[in-house]
Design a protein around this nucleic acid. Structure first.
Lengths: 247, 247
DNA sequence: CAGGAGCCTTCCGCTCAGTGGAAGACTGTC
DNA sequence: GACAGTCTTCCACTGAGCGGAAGGCTCCTG
């Protein structure tokens, strides 16, 4: 829109969105300079656009002069269908599970080749875990991930099996081994991990089905897998309940 | 940006944001026509901007051809400081409370003259309630609202007391009566409502303090207030825990 | 306390990105 | 098969947006 643009072809909208995209889990607060830098915009341009975003409420300026994501974007983000159906429906079941076991409970969906954590419950007594709502973790190293992977299209499985990054010494990095595990996940209808994502943490997960389709995975993180049978039972009851409520 | 604009002075960014702002709790899915209408833009303009927003992931097009808020906006919305501190810290305490009582548990902050629900837990056994995460309800008709109002600046109190809309036959609409209740809330350190927001639902709420400041309110919704003393105790223990964790 | 490094903000002339009416395509409905 | 409702594409006109340059402002540091 301007004569002397340094990057002809870039739209105003794309610049504004680049500013929003400059924020991520590790950059929740940014100065104007950082914002301009991360969005690849000259300072004056960033300054003007950021001013508009702040005026609207997409961003806020903190008392320290830094910028953060604003409440209005938070509002609108919550309207995303990511949760509207699934999360809303699953919420009571997650609480039930949490109440019964006091372990960290997770609800995740597959987003490309990652597991996207849609909801998470963690109490005081729970094992500390790395996930948080909205975070993405690899499919091959988490309980919910293995469930989602086992029921994913073949091209996704191939892509994931071709790149098994090691996270802990116990992470499975051999495609053949993981492939056999996935077959077992389909057969037994649940998956487990043992310190594959974080040391000291094990997990169990089951698929959530809407009709015949696996739409999500429900899992929990524990210090050990000793009560496996009981936990799988509890998870499956909750998963069926969620599936039924999804209609 | 354009020669023949119908509304000179409006920036591209403001138009794009207007499109995002077209979504709200009651309009989670919109057709292009509705979007253009609600954003006050001509169809072709809306079409082009929406295309960019979809390409970036701010919006998604559903299988029915309607538009909804996209996953990427959801991601970024979650980074808002609204929850980062408070919600994260409070989460385990809410679960503890839920586990102990199985009632709907709420965490709210004051946003202007409304109570903004930052988190909510509801199980199967709980009374059905209107609130959901991200929703705003009036300060004068909810338990958490009364707590927040009682500790709000005087100008906010005046503004709210001047406009007490009736929601149920039991909603308090007399300023004098509410004023006396607020004094009691400050004295007793908890608030109650009886079918003032929704018929069949009562609530109890207590303030969450960070040092001397009331930063949030913690409440629960129940079919009756019979175990009031015990519930207030549980809420206050949780509220103090949250306050302490906030440092 | 001068000098300087890093921030942020304002200014302003150039120009191309953005605009939206008009027209066309693609549904479903009677 | 006409029609009403959606959505999509086209294109000539132009003012909104661009960003280099310059000016503030706030901390440092010697």
């Amino acid at each position: 829109m301007a004569g002397n643009t340094s990057t002809p072809g870039a739209t105003v909208t794309s610049r504004a969105l680049a500013l929003l995209g400059a924020f991520d889990e590790h950059h929740r607060r940014l100065t104007l300079t950082e914002l301009a830098d991360r969005a690849g915009l000259p300072m004056p341009t960033a300054h003007r656009l950021v001013g508009e975003l702040v005026a609207w409420g997409a961003l806020v300026r903190t008392s320290t002069g830094e910028y953060a994501v604003g409440r209005r974007l938070w509002d609108i983000g919550l309207l995303a269908p990511v949760q509207t159906g699934l999360r809303e429906v699953a919420s009571p079941y997650l609480h039930d599970l949490y109440g019964a076991t006091l372990a960290t409970v997770h609800l995740a969906v597959r987003d490309g080749t990652s597991a996207l954590y849609v909801d998470r419950l963690a109490g005081h007594a729970s094992v500390p875990v790395v996930s948080s709502i909205g975070s993405r973790l690899p499919l091959h190293a988490t309980g919910v991930g293995k469930v989602l992977l086992a029921h994913a299209p073949l091209d996704v499985q191939h892509a994931v099996l071709a790149d098994l990054t090691r996270i802990t010494p116990y992470t499975i990095t051999q495609p053949g081994l993981l492939r056999r595990q996935l077959a077992r996940v389909v057969r037994d209808d649940y998956a487990t991990t043992t310190e594959e994502m974080s040391l000291g943490g094990c997990s169990i997960a089951v698929p959530v089905r809407r009709g015949p389709d696996v739409v999500a995975a429900l899992g929990m993180v524990l210090p050990s897998l000793k009560d496996r049978a009981k936990l799988v039972g509890a998870l499956q009851v909750a998963a069926r309940g969620i599936g039924r409520s999804l209609g």
